[in-house]
C-alpha cells in the first residue's frame, strides 16, 4: 500500500471522503456509546423500574429503585411466601435515552412554563444571547482599539499591559457579588461578568496580534510617505484585520463559557434558569437538550463567522468568490481603498 492510501500516516492529509467519514464518526462514537448504555439492558442499568409492586408496601409503579434493594425485598418476600414485585432494568433518572432527548428538543419549546409569568424556552435562549451580545460588544468597543494601540505603540503597551496582565488572573465569577452591589440585580451585572471575562484577554490577545504584523510593511509604508495616524489606519489596521477577526471568533467562544456563571449572578435568568428549573422538576431530558442547544448555537455561529470571514477578506484566499467581490465593493473604502479624506 502506498503512503497516500494509509489511514495513519504522520503529518499527511486525508482525502475529502475520509475526512467527512471521520467527522461523522467523531459524533457517532459518543452517540453510540450513549445509545448502547441506554438501550442494551445488560449494560450498566443499575436501577429497576417497578411495573408491579407485588407485596412490597413502599414500592410504587413507575418508580426507580436500586437493583440490590429490589432483589433483597423480593428475596425476603419469597422466603415469607409473599407476592414478588416485577420490574425492568433501568438507568438512573439523570441519564435519559437519546430518543428522549431528541424529543425534548421539540417538546421543551412547545411546553408552556409551569407558572404564567415565567419565560418560554425560546425567550430564555434569546435572553442569553442578548447578555452575551452586550457583554461582548461593550468589551470589544474598548478592548479592540486599546489592544491595537498597545500593539502599535510601546507607550500604551507599558502603560496598560502590566496591570491588565495582573487583572486577567482574577477570576471573573469572583466579581459576581461586587457587580450586583454596584449594578443591581437585573442584566447589568451579568453583562459585567461577560465583560470582565472577555475584556482583559481581548486587549492582550489583540495587542499580540498587532505586534505580529510584519514590521517591513510599516517601513515600506513610511518610505511611501505614510505618517502617524495614516500609518495606523491604512497599514496597521487593515494589515491585522484577518487575524483580528480570527481572534474575535475565539474570544466569542470564551464569552460563552462565562454565560452560565453570569446568569446565576443576581436573579437566575436565561438558559441557565431553564436548566436549573428543569433539573428541579427532574426533567433531565430537557436539561440535556438545553446544554446541547448551547453547543449548537456556539458551533453554528462560529462556523457562520468562519464562512463570512473567507468572503470578507478576499486577499487571504487564492480565488475570489462572487460574494467576496460584493463585500470588497460594499466595504471598499474601508478595507481596500485609500481614497484621500479631503
Amino acid at each position: 500500500m502506498s503512503i497516500n492510501n494509509q489511514w495513519l500516516a504522520i503529518r499527511k492529509p486525508l482525502s475529502a471522503k475520509r475526512r467527512l467519514f471521520l467527522t461523522l464518526l467523531s459524533f457517532l462514537l459518543p452517540l453510540s456509546i450513549w445509545s448502547a448504555v441506554s438501550y442494551v439492558d445488560w449494560l450498566w442499568h443499575p436501577m429497576v423500574e417497578i411495573q408491579d409492586k407485588g407485596d412490597v408496601s413502599y414500592f410504587r409503579e413507575g418508580n426507580l429503585v436500586k437493583k440490590d434493594i429490589f432483589r433483597e425485598e423480593n428475596a425476603t418476600l419469597i422466603a415469607s411466601g409473599g407476592n414478588p414485585a416485577v420490574g425492568v432494568p433501568a438507568n438512573p433518572i439523570y441519564l435519559p435515552a437519546p430518543h428522549e432527548v431528541v424529543t425534548a428538543f421539540y417538546t421543551s419549546f412547545t411546553t408552556p412554563p409551569k407558572r404564567r409569568n415565567e419565560p418560554w424556552l425560546h425567550e430564555s435562549l434569546i435572553h442569553s444571547v442578548q447578555v452575551i451580545f452586550w457583554g461582548f460588544t461593550l468589551s470589544s468597543l474598548i478592548g479592540v482599539p486599546l489592544g491595537i494601540l498597545c500593539g502599535a505603540y510601546s507607550f500604551f503597551s507599558r502603560l496598560h499591559e502590566p496591570f491588565i496582565e495582573f487583572f486577567r488572573y482574577l477570576p471573573a465569577p469572583a466579581f459576581g457579588a461586587l457587580s450586583v452591589a454596584v449594578l443591581g440585580i437585573h442584566d447589568a451585572p451579568k453583562i459585567a461578568i461577560i465583560f470582565i471575562g472577555t475584556f482583559f484577554q481581548q486587549v492582550l490577545v489583540i495587542s499580540n496580534t498587532t505586534r505580529k504584523l510584519d514590521v517591513s510593511l510599516i517601513e515600506a509604508a513610511q518610505t511611501l510617505g505614510a505618517k502617524k495616524t495614516k500609518l495606523l489606519t491604512k497599514v496597521v489596521v487593515p494589515g491585522i484585520l484577518p487575524d483580528l477577526y480570527k481572534d474575535m471568533r475565539i474570544l466569542l467562544g470564551w464569552a460563552w463559557t462565562y454565560l452560565i456563571v453570569a446568569e446565576i449572578v443576581g436573579t437566575s435568568t436565561g438558559i441557565t434558569w431553564f436548566i436549573n428549573q428543569q433539573g428541579k422538576y427532574r426533567i433531565y431530558e430537557n436539561v440535556y437538550a438545553a446544554i446541547i442547544m448551547i453547543g449548537i448555537i456556539g458551533l453554528a455561529s462560529d462556523l457562520f463567522l468562519a464562512w463570512l470571514g473567507k468572503h470578507l477578506f478576499p486577499w487571504t484566499g487564492r480565488k475570489q468568490s462572487k460574494l467576496s467581490v460584493f463585500f470588497s465593493r460594499l466595504f471598499g473604502p474601508v478595507n481596500q481603498t485609500v481614497f484621500d479624506e479631503k
Binding site: 510584519d214 517591513s216 510593511l217 517601513e219 515600506a220 509604508a221 511611501l224 510617505g225 505614510a226 505618517k227 495614516k230 491604512k234 497599514v235 487593515p238 494589515g239 484585520l241 477578506f313 486577499w315 487571504t316 478595507n335 481596500q336 481603498t337 485609500v338 481614497f339 484621500d340 479631503k342
Partner: peptide, 22 residues
C-alpha cells in the same frame, strides 16, 4: 512588502493617496 489587502493598482496608488491625491 506589498500590502496584501490592496490590489496591485491600489498598492501602486498608495504613495499618491498618502500625498493626498486620489
Amino acid at each position: 512588502t506589498l500590502f496584501p489587502w490592496l490590489t496591485v493598482k491600489r498598492n501602486v496608488m498608495f504613495g499618491m493617496n498618502m500625498a493626498g491625491h486620489g
